[in-house]
Design a protein around this nucleic acid. Structure first.
Length: 427
DNA sequence: CCTCCACCGGAAAGCCGGGTCA
DNA sequence: TGACCCGGCTTTCCGGTGGAGG
């Protein structure tokens, strides 16, 4: 170790961290409450929906063998579908304990992550206590095991919530057996003697119903509830309620809540976004040692959220998609505008060759990647007709140059093309 | 008015790495 | 061990298409 002098920081890190950890927040009373996934004790402006769900589900609490309808909830994101459902289920659970009812169980499945028939049944099996391998078994077998195990659940009622149910269709469309899980689940009751299941489907996608097989649809939406978007006044109420629980009194500057509410309302009345906005604004205020959360913090929060979203989207991109993105970037670096799929593909191939380790994909595949990037909002791809010159897409970058440069710097495998100049020439 | 470009995008099938089961 | 399954990614094949230019 001789000769190597240990560099010390000019301040005491340990002490500093201790102070950060232990110093009570001057802004947050309860951080958890300010998270958009938190289910509060009351949900403003959703009384009607809550009542209706209770009405539909109430029979599970009543004696006798009442039939229960399946339930279908739809509305845009952040309209409280999930929160209301969780809220109602929590109350039902409480009542079950109170009345000593032990034959009702609830299983919540988020179809964004569990998005194939196989995984839905695997998750259900896991819920009722059967171990199912991640893969390897035929779906039918998993279904059978679930059914058999469920039969042992005497007079049982299993409430299954399928959140973001539309995700189930998107992937399965490729398969030959579209929405097999939904089909089987909607019919399963007629094969069960001792137990019953009850489905609650939740969808963000208003068009979802159109894609669905009519038999499944009629079974699934025996009861339907629509969740309208919140307007900005309602969002203000929601934010005020949260702020009362999560923030200290007096930390909110005049107009802060109104602005956050108005911002979220201008999109489509998304409460989740409104809450996130307020939380990030509060975090900014805290970090800057401000006593109050101001409108400026809200504006800053919007920028931050947007930036984080882009950064996150880029970072998690697979290498091939990154190369496609870079292809577009380098074309624009050469001041080429109106780049078509063909241009981008050529640039992409060139970059692949430069990074000799990556074998290029076909144009068909790259075309799909372009669509994905478009959906992520990282690029803009518009189909245009150039008459004699065919039909293609005009592709434009939709993010800052800096974001792309950051991406190259952050990913070691891309370093060889730092400062690269494209050889490709248009026309 | 017709042609024909340069791609679009659906369908199907292949490959691979994960697994089960007898 | 071999037959078989799942899911994700990819290739192969191919019919389709809106409008500038002839």
């Amino acid at each position: 170790m001789a000769g190597i002098e240990r560099k010390t920081n000019s301040f005491d890190i340990d002490n500093y961290l201790d102070r950060i950890i232990n110093e009570p927040s001057k802004i947050f009373k309860n951080r958890e409450v300010m998270s958009s996934t938190y289910v509060p004790q009351s949900l403003p402006h959703r009384d009607e929906q809550i009542k209706k769900i209770f009405q539909v589900l109430a029979p599970v609490l009543q004696p006798g063998n009442r039939t229960i309808s399946n339930l279908f909830l739809y509305g845009k994101s952040g309209t409280g579908k999930t929160a209301v459902t969780m809220f109602v289920l929590q109350h039902i659970k409480k009542k079950c304990i109170e009345y000593n009812i032990n034959n009702v169980k609830q299983c919540v499945i988020n179809c964004r992550h569990i998005d194939t028939s196989y995984r839905v049944f695997a998750r259900l099996c896991e819920f009722i206590g059967i171990e199912i391998p991640f893969t390897g078994l035929p779906t039918d077998i998993v279904y059978d095991r679930f059914k058999t195990e469920l039969e042992k659940f005497k007079n049982g009622i299993l409430i299954i919530v399928l959140d973001e149910i539309d995700q189930l269709l998107k992937k399965n469309k490729v398969n030959k057996t579209p929405n097999k899980a939904l089909y089987l689940l909607t019919r399963i009751n007629s094969f069960l003697k001792n137990a019953r299941i009850h489905l609650i489907g939740i969808s963000n996608d208003l068009n979802f119903k159109n894609y669905l097989d009519s038999r499944i649809l009629s079974s699934l939406s025996e009861e339907e509830i629509v969740f309208p978007p919140y307007n900005s006044i309602e969002l203000e109420d929601i934010l005020r309620e949260r702020a009362k629980m999560g923030l200290y009194e007096g930390v909110l500057d005049e107009g802060t809540i109104s602005l956050a509410a108005a911002m979220a309302a201008s999109e489509h009345g998304d409460a989740r976004r409104a809450i996130d906005l307020l939380r990030v604004a509060a975090e900014l205020a805290e970090r800057n040692n401000c006593k109050k959360i101001t409108q400026d913090h809200v504006r800053e929060a919007i920028k931050n959220i947007e930036h984080d979203k882009i950064k996150d989207a880029i970072e998690t991109l697979p290498i091939q998609s990154k190369l496609v993105l870079l292809g577009i970037f380098f074309l624009e670096e050469k001041n080429y505008a109106d780049n078509t799929t063909g241009d981008v593909y050529s640039a992409y191939i060139e970059l692949c060759n430069k990074l000799s380790l990556i074998s290029p994909l076909t144009q068909r595949r790259v075309s799909d990647l372009i669509n994905e990037l478009d959906m992520l909002g990282l690029i803009n791809a518009k189909i245009v007709n150039l008459g004699r010159h065919g039909r293609t897409k005009k592709i434009k970058l939709n993010i800052s140059r800096q974001s792309i440069i950051d991406m190259i710097v952050d990913d070691a495998s891309l370093h060889p093309i730092l400062n690269y100049k494209l050889k490709y020439k248009k026309e």
